[in-house]
């Protein structure tokens, strides 16, 4: 089973080294195979994320968790960056905070996030991030693409207008459920998540109807039919457990 090369299987013969480094001037200690994001959160330091979800592989794609490391010119995604002894990490410099805001604004312009009519209103991670990062408006022009809603599945529906292409659904379906019903078609700005051969979800031959994709979706893109706004709370606590039980450590971190 593939796993992120820097996350090793800890055994007596192959122990994980402990090291100390600094996050925002604070001394922290960590295993060498724990990502900076993990260590930061263990220490109560919050770093915003969108594509990351505990229990799924890392993609390093949304770029919201970027951090600065002293002596490194490039900004690094904390979810796939691993600590070194005496490294100095800064998670909240003005530089990264500004960039995070701008990236989030770009995500808002990409699809049609009309929050007031969204099933996830109040439980939406994209919305929460806007509050967290202090985004009160979006400076870039909205793109207003034309996207469809697929409600052909008997229990679920997908509204591509609200999709942020985090690919959590693709990963959970592949890594945890093992069905790989979801994937992403096209490239660039025309990318879109699909079921099977880009067919209506209801006609998918591979979907088991487990609904995990709905549970992991950060926005109102994937939702359960017949649920009201207030009921649209996601259950995800089972993910790390299932990841462990099914022996799939970071299977597709390079997707």
């Amino acid at each position: 089973m593939k796993q992120h090369p820097q996350k090793k299987v800890r055994t007596d013969l192959n122990p994980s080294r402990l090291l100390t480094f600094k996050i925002d001037e604070r001394d922290v200690s960590a295993h060498e195979d724990e990502s900076i994001l993990t260590v930061a959160r263990q220490n109560g330091i919050s770093i915003p994320t969108l594509c990351h979800l505990d229990g799924l592989s890392e993609r390093g794609a949304c770029r919201l968790c970027i951090i600065e490391v002293k002596g490194v010119a490039k900004l690094l995604p904390s979810c796939v960056t691993f600590p070194r002894q005496d490294m100095e990490v800064i998670t909240n410099s003005e530089r990264v905070v500004t960039y995070r805001k701008k990236i989030l604004e770009l995500l808002f312009t990409e699809r049609n996030h009309v929050c007031s009519v969204c099933v996830s209103n109040g439980h939406c991670e994209l919305q929460n991030l806007a509050v967290e990062l202090g985004v009160t408006h979006v400076r870039y022009p909205y793109l207003y693409p034309r996207h469809a809603v697929d409600a052909s599945h008997s229990r679920f529906s997908i509204d591509h207008n609200r999709c942020v292409l985090c690919l959590r659904c693709v990963r959970v379906c592949d890594e945890i459920e093992g069905a790989h019903t979801w994937d992403i078609m096209g490239r660039g700005i025309t990318s879109q998540v699909i079921t099977d051969l880009n067919q209506p979800w209801g006609t998918s031959e591979t979907c088991t109807g487990c609904g995990k994709c709905v549970q992991v979706c950060p926005t109102g893109a994937l939702s359960e039919k017949g649920k009201s706004v207030a009921e649209m709370i996601k259950r995800r606590q089972f993910l790390p457990y299932l990841q462990m039980m099914r022996g799939r450590q970071d299977d597709s971190w390079q997707k």
Partner: peptide, 11 residues
Amino acid sequence: PLSRVYAVATF
């Protein structure tokens, strides 16, 4: 997987 085939074909 079918969806992967379609993904590669359209990428």
